[in-house]
Simulated scan of single mutants.
Amino acid sequence: MDIFKLFFNHDQRLDKLAKRNANKTPEEVEATLADFMKPDPTYSKFYITGTRLEEEKFGLDTLNKGSHIINQLGDVFSDRTIYTSTGSFENLSKALSATDIGGVMVIASEEPTIDFETLRIDEESNIGHKKEGLSNILKSGAYVMYKEQAHDGFDLHLLSMENIYPSLFDAFQPLVEEDFRFFSINSKRMGSERHFYFETWTLDRPPHGAEEVFTETVL
Rank of each mutant, 00 (worst) to 15 (best):
F7T: 03
F8W: 14
Q12E: 14
Q12R: 15
K16C: 08
L17A: 15
A18P: 10
K19S: 09
R20W: 10
N21M: 06
N21H: 07
N21T: 05
N23A: 11
K24N: 12
T32R: 13
T32F: 04
A34Y: 08
K38W: 01
P39I: 09
D40W: 06
T42A: 07
T42N: 08
T42R: 13
Y43V: 03
S44E: 11
S44Y: 06
S44R: 07
I48R: 06
T49V: 10
T49E: 10
T49N: 12
R52G: 04
R52Y: 13
E54D: 15
E56N: 15
K57R: 15
F58L: 10
G59E: 07
L60G: 09
T62S: 13
T62G: 03
K65W: 04
G66V: 10
I69V: 15
I70F: 07
N71C: 09
Q72L: 04
G74F: 06
V76G: 02
T81P: 00
S85L: 11
S85D: 14
G87W: 06
F89H: 15
L92R: 10
K94A: 15
K94C: 07
L96A: 10
S97W: 08
T99P: 07
D100L: 10
I101N: 09
G102P: 05
G103N: 06
G103V: 07
A108Q: 04
E111N: 05
P112D: 04
I114S: 03
I114D: 05
F116M: 06
E117F: 05
L119E: 00
I121M: 11
D122A: 01
D122H: 08
G128E: 08
G128M: 02
H129T: 12
H129C: 02
K130N: 07
E132P: 00
G133P: 03
L134P: 01
L134R: 06
S135D: 09
S135K: 13
N136E: 12
I137D: 02
L138K: 05
L138H: 06
K139S: 03
K139M: 11
K139Q: 11
A142H: 05
A142R: 03
Y143W: 10
Y143R: 03
Y143I: 06
Y146T: 10
K147N: 12
Q149A: 13
D152K: 03
G153E: 13
D155M: 03
D155W: 05
H157V: 13
L159P: 02
M161R: 14
M161E: 14
M161V: 13
E162N: 12
N163Q: 08
I164R: 01
S167P: 00
S167F: 08
L168E: 01
D170S: 12
A171W: 02
Q173C: 02
P174R: 05
P174M: 05
L175Y: 00
E178K: 14
E178R: 10
E178G: 09
F180E: 08
S184F: 07
N186R: 12
S187M: 13
S187K: 15
K188P: 00
K188L: 14
S192F: 07
E193Q: 10
R194T: 15
H195Y: 07
Y197D: 09
F198V: 02
E199P: 00
E199Q: 12
T200C: 00
T200Y: 00
W201R: 09
W201F: 11
D204S: 01
P207E: 04
H208W: 04
H208I: 10
G209N: 08
G209Q: 07
A210H: 01
V218P: 00
